[in-house]
């Protein structure tokens, strides 16, 4: 007997052909498994990217900054693109700082003077009314007493309650009266933003509105026994004390105002 004849011959449970039939014969060439893995990786990556983009943009869309000027104060706001907004007393401005690149929209209640950097459309919404501009300066008055837009430079489009629309050029003012926009051509627009320099000019304004304005500017409550159905024309400066201002306003009508403590 030759030891050379002793061989190591592993006894396989399955022959090569059985292994082939069982495992490899069904492999499909059209749908390569590696390709599937590859694709699914990219799909996951794409899904992740989309999720991040959606989350990020919805955050940007939903995140709102609110700037509020309390009674008796003014507030200067610089928007993300460098546009300036002066908020008058008791006014609120809302905007989306992270959505700013997509649309320049702000919401205003109260009164504000805008100096808009030129660029894409800039719109100011106040209730149902809207002002659209590209790059101008204008004043918006949007309070329960009324809605007024005065244009200082450039061109301003005012949309009221979704139906009416007028275009304003410098020194024009649109005012909402009985759901119609009335345009005033002969306006000294600088007066409408006098408040930004703490000067107040009223031309033919109901006395009650004047009093409300004074209340806002000094954060006071004014009491009077007289009727206020007069039209007031005049001006005053905020630097003065409120009782002094009230005296100036009331004297021509023989009305005395007192400040509620």
């Amino acid at each position: 007997m030759k030891t050379d004849d002793i061989k190591v011959t592993p006894k396989w449970r399955k022959s090569k052909d059985e292994v082939w039939d069982e495992i490899f014969s069904d492999l499909e060439e059209e749908k390569p498994s590696s390709k599937v893995k590859h694709m699914s990786f990219w799909r996951y990556a794409a899904a992740a990217v989309i999720a991040v983009v959606v989350a990020g943009s919805s955050f940007a869309y939903l995140y709102t900054t609110t700037e509020t000027a309390a009674r008796g104060t003014h507030l200067a706001v610089v928007l993300p693109d460098g546009s300036n907004v002066n908020l008058n007393a008791e006014s609120q401005l809302k905007y989306k700082p992270y959505w700013w690149f997509a649309s320049r929209n702000v919401t205003l209640t109260g009164e504000a003077y805008f100096e808009v950097k030129s660029g894409s459309r800039f719109s100011v919404k106040s209730g149902n009314n809207e002002v659209r501009v590209l790059g101008t300066s204008f004043n918006v008055f949007a309070r329960p007493e009324g809605y007024r837009v005065a244009c200082l430079t450039g061109k301003v489009e005012v949309l009221a309650s979704g139906c009416d629309r007028v275009q304003l050029t410098p020194n024009m003012q649109a005012e909402l009266k009985n759901n119609q926009l009335a345009v005033n051509n002969a306006l000294d627009a600088a007066q409408s933003i006098g408040w930004t320099q703490n000067k107040f000019t009223f031309i033919g304004v109901p006395l009650s509105d004047v009093v409300k304005e004074i209340e806002r500017q000094y954060d006071i409550q004014v009491a009077t026994t007289s009727k206020l159905d007069y039209l007031y024309t005049g001006n005053f400066s905020k630097a003065k004390e409120p009782d002094e201002v009230l005296e100036i306003v009331g004297k021509p009508f023989n009305i005395t105002f007192s400040i509620k403590p």
């Binding site: 004849d5 002793i6 061989k7 190591v8 011959t9 592993p10 006894k11």
Partner: peptide, 10 residues
Amino acid sequence: DFEQSMTFQD
């Protein structure tokens, strides 16, 4: 385990 696999030629 190599023992299982041992064979002799003839």
